[in-house]
Amino acid sequence: MKPPVFEYVRPASLAEALDALASSEDAKVLAGGQSLIPMMNMRLARPGLLVDINHIPELTEIHDNGDTLHLGALVRHYQLETDARIKAAFPLIPEAERLIGHPAIRTRGTIGGSLSHADPAAELPVLAMLGEWNMTVHSRDGGARTIPAEEFFMSYLMTTMGPDELLTRITVPKQLAGASHIREFAVRSGDFALAIAAAMVSLNGDGSIATVRFALGGVGDVPWRNRELESSFVGTMGSDALWRDIGRQAALAIDPVDDMHASAAHRRQLAETLLTESLHRAAEMARERSGR
């Protein structure tokens, strides 16, 4: 199998890349290529112009900004898995990375590619929602703008980025309090998950909930999160019964569909179980960390 014929440009700077993207109606960005190239090999994607951003140095930067970490769009999965700065800022990133594909895929795949591809069963979009990451996108004619995660994912494999826009930087607020955990169920190691649950919990001195966040993947057309539901649990005492209750309420709030991989009912049940377990583990770690 070969990809269909395409024009190829390899810009050396962001400005050149944005020019190239603006020059064609039919341009596609090539980052790690771990989703795009199989789609092209199978002729599911036929871009007229491929803009290879792999040689733009500024997109590879990792920068500690105090309260936030700036990750260039070209930071690769294996770096997310191993970089100490990333682990310190948002420990859920390396934890999730071990669930993503296989080592050979993680060598090439990028954070920007994963978020822009917007597969609702992928891990990083779930973390983006949970961690309230901000996506900075650039275009030749529109300059720069920042899109919060909750406005970034539009539907299956679709984001709110325009065709001439390039995701350049991801701003990750550092996780300062509490602890977090991610769980998923996949039929085989490295497969896309049938369901993903990520949770972040911080507790008050008396064991009641100070903050709780939870997000689900694989259960809809975009990663799922409901802040109103989250805030209804603040102040409640953390307990196994509570984690089960949250799992149940979240499972009722989602609207998964049947597909060839799993029924909606199976996905709903997985979401409930995975979220309950995630919350339980995150709370346990939060307690250990605060020495209670």
């Binding site: 090539l30 290529g33 771990q34 190239i37 792999n54 080592p103 895929i105 060598t107």
Partner: peptide, 21 residues
Amino acid sequence: GACTILLNGRPARSCLTLAVT
């Protein structure tokens, strides 16, 4: 995984990598 090669010291799929990149 049959096409796995070492690319700059790390395993990579040579079927998912364009030679030009």
